[in-house]
């Protein structure tokens, strides 16, 4: 499968996430769009990993080229899980203080 297709799919997914962060005002949906962007990057990393492995695979079927990228994806997932737990705690705190999850209410931070 050409690598361009995977890059194209990841770029479109990432941009949908960017548009979501820019247009929606619900803090939870903004957070989900960030997860969408992280997953687009993960997909691209795995595709590039298989691209490098495929180049080595022709000459040496037992090569381990490309393993590092998949471990990067693993660490990205780990960091995303930690980030979600803290972020949702912040959203719960925001809801408890303002009774809304609209991020426009956060402009009171500037005072």
């Amino acid at each position: 499968m050409p690598i361009e297709y995977y890059i194209m799919l990841s770029v479109v997914l990432f941009c949908i996430g960017v548009v979501g962060v820019l247009t929606r005002r619900n803090a939870i949906i903004i957070f989900m769009c960030i997860e969408l962007m992280l997953n687009a990057v993960n997909l691209m990393l795995v595709a590039f990993s298989k691209m490098h492995h495929g180049a080595e695979y022709l000459t040496n079927p037992t090569s381990t080229a490309g393993t590092d990228a998949q471990l990067f994806v693993f660490f990205i997932m780990v960091v995303a899980a930690a980030e979600v737990s803290v972020g949702l705690a912040i959203i719960v705190m925001l809801y408890r203080n303002t009774h809304s999850v609209d991020v426009n209410f956060l402009n009171r931070l500037k005072n």
Binding site: M1, I3, F48, K50, M51, T67, F74
Partner: peptide
């Protein structure tokens, strides 16, 4: 990038044995 392809359905770097060894 126009000539590169991603390896589909082959290669065993994604299996847990190899990933765990490197990890």
């Amino acid at each position: 990038m126009q000539t590169k392809t991603a390896l589909i359905k082959e290669g065993n770097i994604g299996l847990i044995k190899n990933l765990g060894r490197v990890l």
